[in-house]
Design a protein around this nucleic acid. Structure first.
Length: 194
DNA sequence: GTATCGATTAGC
DNA sequence: CTAATCGATACA
């Protein structure tokens, strides 16, 4: 939880795909190690989620809906499977590569949404388990909140269980955030999964 | 073995 | 709003 919040504002750099792309984290979701029915780790360790149970500081990349990848950062010690899903970034570097990979020009469409983030950073299952200290994906030191920037929190998006926990964090009114971004209230009034 | 459903997205 | 598309999961 604390890690998720702290990741907001930090810069994520990816050299995957042969070109450097960087973005500032503006939206994340926390998935807890135990008792979280929305987490992939809820029913225990499987080949797919194994990395979540490993040491922190590694990427957990999964494939979903038959076509999208999503990127998480594993953040708790070995044995406890907690991770932070990176939902949106503000594009900072590698705009040409981003526009090509995403087949879009609009800045706001490049890295908004978890599937878009993975596509923009050229990350897929082969990067599952990548060491953030050595691999192509890194989190730069520093960053954080800009002057006057507010952090908001609300229920996670696209899940059926665990909606009672406000474990999605984002920068208020940030144009690069996916989904509702004004307030937690707007979030609650918004879409309800099925 | 078959059926169902996603931590989603793009397009109508 | 729905199709797309396939691995993981549930269940017989």
């Amino acid at each position: 939880m604390a890690v998720a919040r702290d990741l907001l504002g930090r810069v994520l750099v990816s050299d995957a795909g042969g070109e450097r792309v960087a973005g500032r984290i503006v939206e994340v979701e926390a998935y807890r190690s135990s008792g979280d029915p929305a987490s992939h780790a809820f029913r225990g360790r499987t080949p797919r989620n194994a990395v979540m149970f490993g040491p922190p500081g590694h990427a957990y990349v999964y494939f979903t809906y038959g076509m999208h990848h999503c990127v998480n950062l594993v953040c708790e010690p070995e044995g406890r499977a907690a991770a932070v899903l990176i939902r949106a970034l503000e594009p900072l570097e590698g705009l040409d590569a981003l526009r090509r990979r995403r087949s879009r020009d609009d800045m706001r469409s490049l890295l908004r949404g978890p599937g878009c983030v993975a596509q923009g950073l050229a990350l897929s299952r082969e990067h599952d388990g990548a060491d953030l200290a050595r691999g192509p994906l890194r989190v730069l030191p520093g960053g954080g909140r800009r002057r006057g920037e507010r952090v908001r929190r609300g229920p996670r998006i696209g899940i059926r269980h665990g909606l009672e926990w406000a474990w999605r964090f984002w920068f208020a009114d940030d144009e690069y955030v996916s989904g509702p971004r004004r307030s937690s209230q707007a979030e609650r009034a918004g879409r309800v999964p099925r």
